[in-house]
Amino acid sequence: MPLLEVKNIEKRFGGLKAISNLSFTVEENVVFSIIGPNGAGKTTLFNVLTNIYKPTSGSIFFRGTEITNLPPFRIARLGVSRTFQNLQVFLNMNTLENVMVGCHLRSKSGLIASALRLPSVIREEKQVRAMALEALEFCGLDEFANRPASSLPYGILKKLEIARSLAAKPKLLLMDEPAAGLNDTETAELCQLIKRIRDSGITVVLVEHNMSLVMEISQEVLVLNYGQLLAQGPPGEIQKNPEVIAAYLGEE
């Protein structure tokens, strides 16, 4: 059974077709990249996959369960997490707290128990703190743990989003342009980080413009153009595909 199965997805905004008749599957334990010129519908696809936008038609399955119409938090509960192109860091918290929110699904204290600070809450707080620190270390952010998120530079915030998602221990991580705005050193670090994420058993679906990064770490690449599937295959094949070259040359 594939991890993620997308069947005949279509998304329209008024008369505009952002995605049309798109089907693909993602197998477990790979880095699956989605590329395409600007406006090809990549971020829209992520928003449809997580049901932030409702698809106009089509269906999506995650580990055999249909998730097409589930609210985002239910999709997250099944083991899907994501990062955002326009950062969605909780700027009203510090770094550690951001990642502790990521542990929400792995803990369970409710409002009343928290207000009373029952012994179970105190115990769980310790565990959550440890889990969050582990995720921070994994991403190399431990030194920033107690810094307010609003004081951190862009590159760190991007990593923080990844750490927050990892803290949820997802099966599938959707990353929306993680390399955008990063310098070469940071991109190289990111490349290593994504590999380690995959090695830890998390499947990564990546939307990215940085071609060398995509070609280096992906097992499978899907090319979108005007919301349609243009090509799909291993990176080597995609690089030679004349239609893909035309689409990119046509644009630039």
Partner: peptide
């Protein structure tokens, strides 16, 4: 408060 969409993606109802 910080980001409702991100909160949802962290599994918060």
């Amino acid at each position: 408060h910080g980001s409702e969409i991100a909160a949802q993606m962290m599994g918060i109802d």
